[in-house]
Amino acid sequence: MNLTLKIWRQKNKNDKGRLETYQVSNISPDSSFLEMLDVLNEQLINEGKEPVAFDHDCREGICGMCSLYINGEAHGPDRGVTTCQLHMRKFKDGDTIYIEPWRSAAFPVIKDLVVDRSAFDRIMAAGGFVSVNTSGNTQDANNIPIPKDDADKAFDAATCIGCGACVATCKNGSAMLFVSAKVSQFALLPQGKVEATRRVHNMVKQMDEEGFGNCSNTGACEVECPKGISLENIARMNREYLKASIISEDEE
């Protein structure tokens, strides 16, 4: 396959950035999208030019490191996959492909296609945990039975890989799907319920401080999420949040 690539190049966070055009040829349709970028980079290095920086690590769709807004869609045109699992057979010979970084005020560009998603870590640090020490002296794992459905739903929410596609794709740049997945996971489990009120309050507060936009329920995040995290989680978080706002005795 021969392709024309329009790639966002930006030297660092202070640079203005621009789209630049590159040609790659003889790309195997069986190679992955990132392997296609590897070929481009090899080519650029051999030409004495600076290769394109992009985030990636596990290349099997689980670490959440890869990103990329490809031809107007987060993680490209395929569904239920991350960019590293996207294969070139989804494109046609001669295609022009636009490759841009996630766009969000909360995800500033570090270089080229690499963005800073540490806002997610700060939201997690605000409440994305159960406050137990790792003593090993907790009660036996089977002491509290958990209904299978709850455990399964908690698991489904917990499969979020924190890639940020939801933010990237949301017209408002909202992080509700990400935050709600974590809030839901714990809200569904007895171990997490104990501090559910505090958790949802603190996580939402941090989310707002990070500069993410608001949820207007377009549902785009659910469609583009590579892990199929459900909108149900957002509703659950809203419910938890309302509950927290009404019953909380805290000043906040």
Partner: peptide, 10 residues
Amino acid sequence: DQCVAQGVPF
């Protein structure tokens, strides 16, 4: 035990 207490959904 530890992981269950932490909310790991086994």
